[in-house]
């Protein structure tokens, strides 16, 4: 989800001057953007060597960690915002990490591919797993081990005792508030404890 419009739409959810922890920060583009345009500070977490290198190259603080080992390094409410952008679907301990996100950050922002987006539904209706721009992988080589929908995350947040401050869909970089579970490729939640 490197799309510039999507990144900017998510960045607008981060208050100016926030201390940010970006879980699964990739090449650090989001943190770089937040530092340059919104006066934020913070750290990215990455497991991948090439991404860690890319972050150091950009001058973005990065900590190489496996998120499946949890966030024990970080104290309660030690960040204004914890980002989990296109990360949740890769995590074995997705439920724990959702709670950890709200423990470490005053606000957690979670964005992930919405499996209930209508092209995906059509594909499954035809009997095939979807392969789209948003979900470009074949079923047998996908790194997305958690397949969920916009509606599913609301239930998981409730189950985990988290408050949903806001939730909406993103499609082509635009915020969708009408039927996001059907019309949006990306689901976004703003959560707190």
């Amino acid at each position: 989800m490197s799309d510039q419009l999507t990144m900017e739409a998510l960045a607008r959810l981060v208050p100016v001057g926030s201390r940010v922890l970006d879980l699964g920060c990739g090449d650090g583009a989001m943190l770089d953007h937040l530092q340059r345009t919104r006066g934020c500070t913070g750290y990215g977490i990455e497991i991948d060597d090439a991404n860690v290198l890319a972050c150091v190259q950009r001058g973005v603080n990065v900590i190489q960690l496996n998120l499946d080992e949890g966030l024990a390094l970080f104290g309660d409410q030690s960040f204004d915002v914890v980002l989990q952008i296109d990360t949740l679907q890769h995590l074995r301990n997705a439920e724990t990490m959702l709670r950890e996100t709200a423990r470490v950050g005053r606000i957690g922002i979670v964005a992930f591919p919405n499996f209930a987006h209508w092209p995906n539904r059509l594909s499954v209706l035809r009997g095939r797993m979807p392969v789209t721009r948003r979900l470009p992988y074949q079923w047998y080589d996908t790194p997305n081990i958690r397949v969920g929908t916009h509606a599913d995350l609301a239930l998981l947040a409730q189950r985990s005792g988290l408050h949903v401050l806001d939730s909406f869909g993103l499609q082509a970089g635009r915020v969708l508030r009408l039927a996001p579970n059907l019309l949006a490729g990306t689901s976004v939640y703003q959560l707190s404890r």
Binding site: D49, N61, I63, L65, L73
Partner: peptide
């Protein structure tokens, strides 16, 4: 990581690579 954690607690700029 103990050093990383202590620096994080002090809000210092840092990067950490675990090769």
């Amino acid at each position: 990581r103990e050093i990383v954690r202590a620096l994080l607690d002090n809000r210092r700029d840092l990067s950490y690579a675990e090769i």
